[in-house]
């Protein structure tokens, strides 16, 4: 269970608040207008921004003061998900060992992960030589080897076309099935949420609604969601 207990964070004139619980293994989509605080929420969970108040716990352990790298969390950003000067295999290998001194078994694991996301044989290339879709696959290969119990997606596929994005979400589902990880993803499109999420929270006006089951939410949308979707 991931708990956000009375979290609050003031940035400028806005104060973001969150108080919710998400069962382990759930797949949560955060939906809502730009600037409502979706990315801020991910930054809080990933540990890039410390909250002013409140606690974050995972399976009862307090994460609030842990460094980002020490949290049970892997995250994909909108861009800059790879170090451009390292090879694809090195970028994936960083998920296993930050010092990059891999054992033979670990190197083999990197190869297997690349193979699984469809990048077999591309390990020696630099990320800049890959297409956008391939870069997303490489980033997912790292999530795969990291085996962290929580995966955060801050719209990493926003720049991809609809078909490619669908492929990536399928791949994410495959990775999650394999690792059993809990997912929290930021999304603008209800269809993305429907494709992958078991739960949806609406983020609006700097606060977040408790997770609700996806179909239930869309069949009977609350006012904040109706405002966002329009019509």
């Amino acid at each position: 269970m991931l708990r956000l207990e009375n979290l609050s964070l003031t940035q400028g004139v806005f104060t973001m608040t969150a108080d919710m619980a998400l069962p382990a293994g759930a797949r949560l989509a955060l939906i809502g207008p730009s600037g409502a605080g979706k990315s801020t929420l991910l930054n809080l969970i990933a540990g890039f921004t410390p909250p002013d108040q409140g606690r974050i716990t995972w399976q009862g352990d307090d994460l609030t003061d842990a460094a980002p790298g020490a949290r049970p969390v892997s995250i994909l950003f909108q861009d800059n998900n790879h170090f451009p000067h390292l090879t694809v295999a090195q970028n994936v290998g960083l998920g296993l060992r930050p010092a990059l001194k891999l054992t033979a078994a670990e190197a083999a694991e990197v190869d297997r992960a690349l193979d699984q996301v469809g990048l077999a044989g591309m390990g020696t290339r630099k990320p800049g030589t890959l297409s956008g879709g391939q870069q997303s696959r490489a980033a997912l290969a790292r999530v795969l080897v990291q085996k962290k119990p929580i995966v955060l997606l801050d719209e990493p596929f926003a720049a991809l076309g609809p078909a490619l994005k669908g492929e990536m979400l399928d791949l994410v589902a495959e990775v999650l099935d394999q690792t059993g990880a809990t997912l929290i993803m930021v999304s603008h499109q209800p269809e993305d949420a429907r494709a992958i999420a078991s739960h949806v929270s609406v983020v609006a006006d700097r606060t977040i609604t408790p997770p609700q089951e996806t179909e239930a939410l869309f069949t009977n949308p609350p006012q904040a969601l109706r405002d966002y979707l329009g019509g």
């Binding site: 540990g47 980002p68 790298g69 950003f77 170090f83 090195q90 960083l94 930050p98």
Partner: peptide
């Protein structure tokens, strides 16, 4: 550009310098 990624991967100290 890459500080958050390095943080998320736990790249600190000498490894961050080198990589």
């Amino acid at each position: 550009g890459y500080g958050r990624l390095a943080d998320a991967l736990g790249l600190t100290g000498y490894a961050r310098l080198r990589l």
